[in-house]
Design a protein around this nucleic acid. Structure first.
Lengths: 97, 97
DNA sequence: GACTTACTAAAGCTATTGCTTAACTTTTGG
DNA sequence: CCAAAAGTTAAGCAATAGCTTTAGTAAGTC
């Protein structure tokens, strides 16, 4: 199954994991470094980094490394894309009634 | 009785698959039977039914069987839950700026 | 009653996911 | 320079996801 995933596939898939949603919730308040993001979780740092990679791969998070610190932040346009897809379906349904 | 987090897990996970999103898109227009839903897809009927089971498990779709026909429809409140989670994050982020 | 339609149940198979640990590299502070 | 801090890479592994095929059951049709 090598067909390339759409942006929505990647975004929904990224948000399907509770750890990744927690990361997004954290980042909704302010940007943060990888270590800061990892600290609250009981899992290993590489595990958190893999979650961040999924989030970046989906476009929901962007990051920039300066010195040895990578700072991550939310990309709200990717959130909008998902929000709009859902809103469109819900609205289509409700318009019928 | 699922807590909010699990409900979101299930909903996002359900929507992460393109086949299931296509089913939701179809159902946004009108309710449909399992066979009607399966017809446009190249995969087997049991495969589509498994997708429908995931959607029902997430609460995004409900169904009722009358005679030998199961009719599926969208449950917009489950869509709202997802929509609101995203909206909250996006709004939190944008309020900061 | 036999046939077809509509759905269901179960088993199995492969690829992906979500972790782990271990071994790096690159900065930075003393 | 030396060592700690911050991040990265790679390998491996158990569980899950997304199919398949096969074999059903229940309900309309003739």
């Amino acid at each position: 199954m090598l067909n390339q995933s759409s942006a929505l596939d990647l975004a929904f898939q990224a948000l399907a994991d509770p750890t990744r949603r927690a990361l997004v919730e954290r980042l909704a308040h302010s940007p943060a470094s990888v270590s800061d993001l990892a600290r609250p979780f009981s899992m290993s740092l590489p595990a958190v980094m893999q979650h961040l990679a999924v989030l970046e791969g989906s476009g929901l998070v962007v990051s920039e490394k300066v010195g040895r610190v990578r700072t991550c932040r939310i990309e709200p346009r990717a959130l909008s894309l998902v929000e709009q897809w859902i809103n469109t379906r819900r609205t289509e349904w409700e318009r019928r009634l």
